[in-house]
């Protein structure tokens, strides 16, 4: 196991992503941040807090569970559902920034776009991830990336966050390619 991002790296990445979001979106009041549970949602709340610290603007933030929209439901045992929290401002006509911890095949994000379409019609959707590890299976890319982490399929990327795991860290483990699918 090797550590790819330390706790300081993670907080720097979150601060940088927050600055980039403010830079790219000239009207930050139209932005809504939705994290994909579980750790994507934790990161979403941190980014919203960071934007508040930097600019004093309070961005509506929530969580979007994508389990029911996954494309691998029928080949896996059923998964428990997670909380979906849509902020009062909704998503209609807004700029929605999806947040996830690791961008890998892109299938989670495809499911998230479907799930988001059920909630409403955002004006535009952007994607922020803490780690982009490559190996995309769909034409999807992130607008904000904390760290590009080239990996092989024999590696797994593990994100730990204080909210859930007691400490902030991103590590890489060696596993068999089959376990990774």
């Amino acid at each position: 196991m090797s550590v790819a991002l330390s706790s300081e790296d993670i907080s720097r990445a979150i601060t940088r992503i927050s600055h980039e979001i403010l830079e790219k979106n000239t009207d930050p009041t139209s932005v809504t941040i939705l994290g994909i549970p579980t750790r994507g949602a934790d990161l979403a709340y941190r980014i919203a807090q960071s934007i508040l610290d930097i600019s004093g603007i309070e961005i509506p933030v929530g969580a979007l569970d994508i389990t029911l929209h996954r494309d691998d439901l029928r080949i896996r045992p059923p998964r428990p559902l997670m909380d979906t929290v849509i902020p009062l401002a909704g998503v209609e006509g807004r700029t929605v920034i999806l947040v996830d911890d690791v961008l890998f095949s892109g299938r989670t994000i495809r499911s998230a776009l479907d799930a988001l379409g059920e909630v409403g019609r955002p004006a535009r959707v952007q994607l922020a991830v803490l780690v982009d590890r490559g190996h995309r299976e769909l034409p999807i890319r992130a607008d904000y990336v904390g760290k590009n982490l080239p990996t092989s399929l024999n590696q797994s990327v593990k994100v730990s966050l204080i909210e859930r795991d007691g400490a902030d860290e991103v590590s890489i483990d060696e596993v068999s390619a089959a376990e990774n699918l």
Partner: peptide, 20 residues
């Protein structure tokens, strides 16, 4: 029961149909 709770909230969010 907790799955039912989540599903009822999905319906309250305005989603009447899921592709599951």
């Amino acid at each position: 029961l907790s799955t039912a709770h989540e599903l009822s909230r999905v319906s309250e969010n305005g989603t009447k149909k899921l592709p599951t």
